[in-house]
Write a protein that binds this DNA or RNA. Structure first.
Lengths: 235, 235
DNA sequence: ATAATAGTGTCTTTTAGACAATATCAC
DNA sequence: GTGATATTGTCTAAAAGACACTATTAT
């Protein structure tokens, strides 16, 4: 907005603004996205990203945070939430002009949305399956953009810790990278890398035994937000 | 958009959607941004980013491209145009709820907008000055986000060539990096780096003498879009 | 003991960055 | 010639990636 000559709100076309969410989590070492099943036309029965209208006095970030809480059925969703990009092709929704501001959320392993709650109908779907099957509207494109953003940001930020619970081991963190990037990493080089990045990990002084093998040191996320130098996914 | 139960368009608040442009160019080796002076309230007399309403049957990208042409007064604007992010705080425009989808445009040295044209009132302002002085609405924030995006993308993409005319020398390209990052780079290491990146530069076989010194080889932008490995600005 | 996972050390290759040296122009 | 810019080469330090090796657990 703008230079333009005076305008009357009524001159301008009605546009609806929504937020759509790409919510990613790790379940059993697999990267999953939260999808809902549409109960009505258009795209009745198809899977879609969760989302909804932005309310009159709400910021875009607040609308995304509200939808995230509503659709997961959790009071407080830990992790990370950031704006992804906006989608506004005139024909993306056949009912009216809808501009959607998409958000990317990353969360640690969350429970399956409860059947009785508002979040019923939402479920975690492995991203490979979600990307293959059809999705409502332009949500396949939004999901692809969200995945690419997540994959890229793991390279040069500490974002992977958003997929972990408050306390985690280096192996937990490596499992995040392997799931998001879809390829195995060398445990020894990975360990040296992340423990050698100042401020990334805060040692709790404790260890945790997970079945066989030497117990792993337990860390919390440190204050660092960037990775210098970055981890690389191409290799 | 989503899951929700049926809705009537009239239930939802009227929202205006605009595009705002952060148009960057190099003038005399200085990074400049295109600003307009507002002729009316609110923010009458203040400088603002160019922008305008998205038309009913227009994609967001098309609206941004149209505004770019209108505000520069050029038929065809070379360079690069990409979506930056959206801004939708309820109070960002006192007149009504306005969600702005910001775009980032990078262009080679463009002429001063002609006084008689539609683009009159627009002018190129050095970014240091634009960032310092007040801007209308939340445009200071949008400008800062655009600059950060441009600075970051020079590291790992071939975007710098968008600031150059179709044919350019390695020195021209280096001048882009130095202007955008605001720091000098070693000409020798820079030369080795960019000429050694496959697909970044296409040799025209010609050279060009610019005053004193050995004539430089003239290149065109090659097919490569990414830089592997990246150039680094912290270094 | 054996298998499994955690963590350390070592080596090679690649790259960044500093900077010497050479090439080709204007003057 | 001198001075300026372009381009190539050389050296050092840092980092990536491969992988041997040690540490600590369960069985």
């Amino acid at each position: 907005m703008t230079t333009g000559s005076g305008y009357d709100p009524d001159e301008y076309p009605r546009v609806a603004v929504t937020v759509d969410l790409v919510v990613l989590t790790l379940r059993d070492g697999e990267l999953c996205v939260l999808l809902v099943e549409r109960g009505e036309e258009p795209w009745r029965g198809a899977r879609a990203l969760p989302g909804g209208f932005v309310r009159p006095d709400e910021t875009l970030d607040a609308a995304a945070a509200r939808e995230l809480v509503e659709e997961t059925g959790l009071r407080d969703v830990p992790g990370h939430l950031e704006q992804l990009r906006s989608y506004g092709d005139p024909e993306r929704d056949p009912r009216m002009r809808v501009v959607s501001v998409a958000y990317l959320a990353l969360a640690p392993d969350l429970p399956e949305p409860a059947a009785g709650s508002d979040a019923a109908g939402a479920s975690w779907v492995p991203v490979d399956q979600a990307s293959a099957g059809p999705l409502a509207f332009d949500h396949a494109r939004i999901l692809a953009d969200g995945l690419e953003r997540a994959r890229a940001k793991l390279e040069y930020t500490s974002l992977a810790t958003a997929f972990c619970p408050p306390e985690f081991t280096v192996s937990d963190l490596r499992a995040v990278y392997e799931a998001v990037w879809g390829r195995p990493l060398d445990p020894r080089n990975f360990h040296r890398k992340v423990t050698g990045t100042p401020g990334l990990l805060a040692d709790t002084g404790r260890t945790r035994a997970e079945g066989r093998g030497r117990p792993a040191t337990v860390y919390r996320a440190g204050p660092a937000t960037g990775l210098h130098p970055p981890l690389t996914r191409d290799g």
